[in-house]
């Protein structure tokens, strides 16, 4: 009969109406500022810079190689290299960025900067509440605002952070091993040189003592 299905439909909506007051499970929405849904594992918003240790200035992994600046499709990264050098995590002296700006009003979250960075230093942030009243000043993130500790990275992307930590540890180990090997070689060379010198001295006691060997750095 005409109208039967309308009554059925009305019953369904009525059940929804009253059900939503009694069972919380029916409600599909979340009261956002108070309640939040957990973010998905691969969430990404805008890039940030990782630093090791506690000091953002000292531990910044970025070496201002400017690959990200060149690769960035919308050209939202601006880097000024430093004139001097400071030691990186491996202890090698490296250039560091004097200025590192990302304009997140231009950034398109493509993650290419992260893909190309050879130093595991630029990563994607999950922070999304970025609204400000100043669209020019506050949306241009400077080095100070971009720098986040490694512990933060481990918190937001645990799997990726572990991977990048492993890479860094391997690099470090490799560098240390290299340094050690170099040192050993040096010691060996020194010993050889000493032995030679001793032999030479024994052969020619009046020969002058050898000059100090250049220290490996």
């Amino acid at each position: 009969m005409l109208g039967e299905q309308i009554i059925k439909g009305m019953a369904v909506t009525a059940r929804n109406f009253f059900g939503s007051y009694f069972s919380k499970n029916r409600l599909t929405t979340v009261q956002y500022p108070e309640e939040r849904l957990p973010q998905k594992g691969n969430t990404r918003q805008f890039p940030f810079l990782v630093y090791d240790g506690d000091d953002a200035e000292k531990g910044l992994r970025c070496v201002a190689c400017q690959i990200c600046e060149k690769e960035c499709p919308p050209k939202c990264i601006y880097i000024v290299k430093s004139k001097d050098k400071k030691p990186d995590y491996k202890g090698q002296p490296q250039i560091y960025p004097l200025t590192f700006d990302i304009d997140i009003s231009v950034c398109m979250s493509c993650q290419i900067c992260v893909e190309v960075c050879p130093f595991e230093s630029i990563k994607m942030n999950t922070e999304f509440e970025l609204s400000t009243a100043d669209r020019f000043g506050d949306l241009l993130l400077t080095k100070e605002k971009l720098a986040k500790p490694n512990s933060y990275y481990q918190k937001i992307h645990p799997a990726d952070a572990a991977e990048s930590d492993a890479v860094i540890a391997a690099e470090k180990a490799k560098a240390e091993a290299k340094a050690k090997a170099a040192a050993e070689a040096k010691v060996k060379a020194d010993a050889e040189a000493k032995a030679k010198a001793a032999a030479a001295a024994a052969a020619a006691p009046i020969a002058p003592p050898p000059a100090n060997p250049p220290t490996t750095t």
């Binding site: 929804n16 109406f17 939503s20 409600l27 599909t28 929405t29």
Partner: peptide, 10 residues
């Protein structure tokens, strides 16, 4: 509010 409740929203 009523339509929200019918659609299982607040």
């Amino acid at each position: 509010k009523g339509i929200g409740r019918i659609q299982n929203r607040y």
